[in-house]
Nucleic acid binder design. Sequence first.
DNA 1: AAGATAAACCTACGATGTAGGTAAGACAAG
DNA 2: CTTGTCTTACCTACATCGTAGGTTTATCTT
Lengths: 235, 235
Amino acid sequence: MLIHMTSSPPAAPRRGRPPRGAAPGLSRQRVLDEALALVDDEGIGEVSMRKLARRLGVDPMSLYNHVDNKDAILDGITELVLASTEFPAPTGDLRADLLEMARVFRRTMLNHPRAAPLVLTRQLASSQALAPTEIVLDRLCTAGLPMADAVHALRAVLAFLMGTLMREVNAGPTFGTGNPQAIEARRTELAESGLPTVSAAAPYLAVCDHEAEFEFGMRVLLEALDAELARTEAR
Amino acid sequence: MLIHMTSSPPAAPRRGRPPRGAAPGLSRQRVLDEALALVDDEGIGEVSMRKLARRLGVDPMSLYNHVDNKDAILDGITELVLASTEFPAPTGDLRADLLEMARVFRRTMLNHPRAAPLVLTRQLASSQALAPTEIVLDRLCTAGLPMADAVHALRAVLAFLMGTLMREVNAGPTFGTGNPQAIEARRTELAESGLPTVSAAAPYLAVCDHEAEFEFGMRVLLEALDAELARTEAR
DNA sequence: AAGATAAACCTACGATGTAGGTAAGACAAG
DNA sequence: CTTGTCTTACCTACATCGTAGGTTTATCTT
């Protein structure tokens, strides 16, 4: 990133003419920002090159000057979201640090619930996308875990995170809303379908404290990690 | 489902004319079966009404006589896969039973890896789709867990299952194939990107024994479940 | 002044999901 | 046997999609 002023003074790293129509000059950044906004507003399924271009006041094909194709846009959205994740400084307490990182990650996903499936699904290998991995692995290793086990632990936590977040973010009202009347109706319906236990559990299935689920799972996994660490140190 | 024979004897619950062209008579079942086959062959992204119709030797629009729309087909595929899951009879050992159910579920997903994202993503509320839930909840309850905790446990395991299976089924070679040469290249590349730990972990990240990851996670979760049960009984 | 470059635009193609309409065989009622 | 209803398959048509290919124009370099 070197500062290299040419002779011409004005400004603008933008090269082409300043739009023929009225667009204030496109750029990869602007395209991706608007794409993320579009996803946040309407969901992944509603993303199309044409709609995105319309929001930018630009011809659909102009997007291809800044982005390879639609898939690259989805990748870009993923990276944008990941880049917006600000992991806290380590405190030295491994378990607390990992828990906090997971919490921050979850918060980020909840900030972009409609984009979350992208982030959770696409496994990017850019350095941007691997930054969190870097931090976690580093802390696990400095805590004394052999690399193989560190990767193991990382994957287990990641799998759980993916799973809960997927559920939390989809969050369709599978068992009706909190409406107790609807739940009751669903309940008798289930009982008649040969699902007595599910029927009995309907009130519990109808509501879901995602945060509690998240904390519970993390506690279990981190406890297992502690046990693993203790075993390693004993050796 | 009452048996009510009319006078005319021949057979065939099929009503319409036997194809104008040469199709051997469509049915919801045939459509869904072929749809699953299509997914297995080419992946979810390649499913289209037209392609599906072509495989059935039928006009695309004919499908709509047996299925509401494309989304219903995807739901149908999900149910087909779920229906093909044969959970074993309970042995009485709760933990072993749950582990075995998870294994069977995993096997089913691996039998239809390309359909798995559908099954894992869509949360269906049909009695077909809820059958596994019924079994698990029932066993957890008869083991002595309060319903609230049973639902809790179910969700934790499910989240982990979803996560690992999503990873396993996508299984893109994030870090190159097993090719040691490619790994080494990737490795120096990562080191230069300010990701020293990831770089060092590259050999471990490059390979992934999904089965071991699965077994590890399940062991941790089931151990936590045991602890929970012990706590409940003590109370 | 002349040429190169980059960014915007435009046209067009094949593919998609599906609304709306038509035709033809099967059954029931007369 | 005729007539009408029903079911199912077929056909046409439309809006929308991603994007290949080509054209225009404003800016920078020489």
